[in-house]
């Protein structure tokens, strides 16, 4: 850290310029991954660019009929936006499973996503929700689906100088979302498996759209399109749920580690996928 520089720009353009000027510079949101990794010597950036002083990056707001969440908004602030928490409870709950209150008062969903851990809790929920990222960079702005950001553990598709400006959630529509994770403790642990679901149901209870995503069972959190497709057109009866769970199982490519064996993770991914679909369905009913 001998020659570390600390910057706290106040505009997106200044942040782009600072990051583009130095390939060894890193954006800083809550620092709950970045500072830990710097302390442990895993990374040694030449500069840190704190995004929290950029007004456009903090807070939540309506974006059309959906929502925009500034990339530097801490997870606990999401709960204070009642409309957001009512429309996307799965996303807000997932972000608020991260760490402790102290950690969540700093940690952001953008940091969770860009740290690119396969076990990041908010990511399957965001993918299931169909969230997108607005990215700023030397080439201007672009918008990509959340699932396009992580490439492998610790690696993202962001080009040098690029960073996430905001996370956008689509209009809720008539449906519900949910996220659950499996951990050996009740708090302060990393997901062994995580699953997110987002359903849209018509007035008769027939599923018209479904997105299922799982975490910690592959090098990145993944969308399982076949799992969603197994539910569409059904009334979420047992054969449809079984086909959905089977598609989840088929998509899992987990590792064995101290947190769980590959076999356990795969079995739990099915269990959690069924549970999140049940919660999302109930929420969809309440929203109908």
């Amino acid at each position: 850290m001998a020659s570390l520089a600390f910057h706290a720009p106040e505009t997106i353009d200044q942040a782009v310029a600072l990051l583009a000027a130095n390939p060894a510079a890193r954006p800083l949101s809550g620092g709950t991954d970045l500072i830990v990794q710097m302390r442990s010597g895993r990374i040694a950036p030449a500069a840190v660019v704190d995004l929290k002083r950029i007004a456009a990056l903090t807070g939540t707001r309506r974006h059309g009929l959906g929502f925009a969440i500034g990339a530097a908004t801490p997870c606990t602030a999401l709960k204070r936006d009642r409309a957001l928490a009512a429309a996307w409870p799965g996303v807000v709950e997932a972000a608020n499973l991260i760490g402790s209150v102290q950690v969540r008062n700093r940690a952001t969903m953008a940091g969770n996503l860009c740290n690119a851990s396969p076990a990041a809790d908010s990511v399957p929920a965001l993918i299931a929700a169909g969230a997108t990222c607005l990215i700023a960079g030397p080439q201007g702005e672009r918008e990509v689906p959340v699932e396009a950001i992580p490439l492998a553990p610790g690696r993202t598709s962001l080009a040098p100088g690029e960073f996430v400006v905001e996370i956008r959630l689509p209009p809720r529509g008539q449906g519900g979302d949910a996220y659950l994770r499996s951990i050996p403790r009740t708090e302060m642990d990393i997901a062994v498996v995580g699953a997110g679901a987002n359903l849209v149901l018509d007035g008769e209870g027939t599923c018209t759209a479904a997105r299922i995503a799982v975490g910690a069972v592959a090098p990145t959190a993944i969308l399982v399109p076949e799992a969603g497709a197994a539910l569409v057109g059904t009334r979420l009866d047992e054969p449809a749920l079984a086909a959905m769970a089977e598609a989840v199982r088929a998509a899992c490519r987990p590792i064995d580690d101290k947190r769980g064996t590959a076999e356990y993770r795969t079995a739990m991914a099915e269990v959690l996928a069924r549970r999140v679909v049940a919660i999302a369905r109930q929420r969809a009913g309440e929203n109908a």
Partner: peptide
């Protein structure tokens, strides 16, 4: 960030001061 022994209040919210840069 695991133990909370360093907890302080930063602009009204509790945080782990070990995971805050002093410059922030």
């Amino acid at each position: 960030g695991d133990c909370g022994a360093c907890t302080v209040i930063l602009d009204g919210e509790m945080v782990c001061s070990c995971l805050v840069f002093a410059a922030e």
